[in-house]
Design a protein around this nucleic acid. Structure first.
Lengths: 209, 209
DNA sequence: TTACTGACTTGATATTTATCAATTTTCTTT
DNA sequence: AAAGAAAATTGATAAATATCAAGTCAGTAA
């Protein structure tokens, strides 16, 4: 049940990571102790070193992953070799590839740790079992999906009506905490501009102040 | 219960539109006759003429809308007066503004009929009641949300790695049926390019063939 | 520390796409 | 069918951003 592919590991570590997840759940759903026991029994903690991949393109994704610590990103690589970041995921967010999971298809995406990170994995079969035991979790998932969808639409909307500079400023405003944690070239690939352009924009903004 | 703000209306019309919705549901969820009766009792059919708005910016959205017939689009207007289409919705799709609904905020978006259309509206309070009576519908909603989210991420991904021409070709491939139903300037506002550019691209492609 | 690698910056130039303006075409309404 | 309005096309030009090429800086590993 308990497993870890990281470098070192002990039971206390597992417990403290699970505790983060439990706290997250407790804020949103009432779950009995026995159900928590079940959730714990199917949870797998995985450490990731910076640069390590949680998902490789062409692999199948079959779990649900909750970020306990650290920062990851999901991205694809196009024919020309350029990276495109779909989103960043930090503490208390979920990552994965639902497209691969739902359709049982090889993934088009990579998921990579930007910092040393810890994720909690639950295999989809077990996740469905949790749904059966604790149906209120469906409402939680529903809410998360709705918010994610709103955010995605908002991003599409904001992207199209903005210049590169506006996009960057919008990012700074909406995710000030991320701006310092994400390397410039990844941020550029998230905003859909080149690193050079982003570098110049930064300089430009610094000068104005 | 039964209502219509369109031009003309009769009971048979209501029934035939509800039948479309029922067929849609039957394919995905098992629902008892009495539950169908309840759903029917809270469903409102609304006709929309071409150009008519289902939602106006600054209004609050409080329903769930299923498209029985026709084609609509959701869009915003920026400070410069340019339109940005977030998505198109045709037969058997849902439209609305979950952001406004969830947070009880005035909407930033317009929803407009591109063709004469018919939508089936269920007020959110009644929708929650349906959730209570027919919890399996939650799974349906969940699936829809997941697919929409995948599509949105896919779109973000495709947009950033493509030129205007590639975006247009990608649209033609993924939504060949829509290409003929959507006016050029709306398609341009969906792809995030100007109508002039799209017009030139079309010409370019026509010439090559 | 030193060397190495990857990230970031900077400059020169090329390309794409937007903007503005005029014209033609198509659709609506009477 | 005619008039008016909206949409689409076309051309000329401008602006934004990408690309290519060096060079600098920073962090990592030996």
């Amino acid at each position: 049940m308990i497993s870890c592919t990281g470098l070192f590991f002990n039971f206390d570590f597992f417990l403290s990571m699970f505790e983060i997840f439990r706290k997250y759940l407790e804020e949103k759903v009432a779950i009995s102790d026995s159900d928590y026991a079940f959730i714990k029994s199917v949870s797998v903690i995985k450490r990731l070193r910076k640069h390590q991949l949680l998902l490789n393109a062409d692999d199948r994704w079959s779990s649900h992953a909750f970020v306990c610590e650290g920062l990851l990103r999901k991205f694809s690589i196009d024919e020309k070799g350029s990276e495109h970041t779909v989103y960043f995921a930090f503490e208390n967010w979920w990552v994965g590839d639902r497209e691969s999971l739902m359709n049982n298809l090889p993934s088009k995406y990579y998921i990579e740790a930007i910092e040393d990170s810890v994720v909690l994995l639950i295999h989809d079969e077990n996740f469905q079992e949790i749904f059966r035991k604790v149906p209120q979790i469906k409402d939680l998932v529903n809410t998360i999906l709705q918010r994610s969808l709103n955010a995605a639409h908002e991003r599409i909307n904001a992207t199209f009506k903005s210049t590169a500079e506006e996009k960057y400023k919008h990012f700074l405003k909406s995710s000030p905490n991320l701006a310092n944690r994400v390397p410039l070239h990844m941020l550029a690939s998230y905003l859909g501009i080149t690193p050079e352009t982003l570098s110049r924009i930064r300089k430009q903004i610094a000068k104005t102040k």
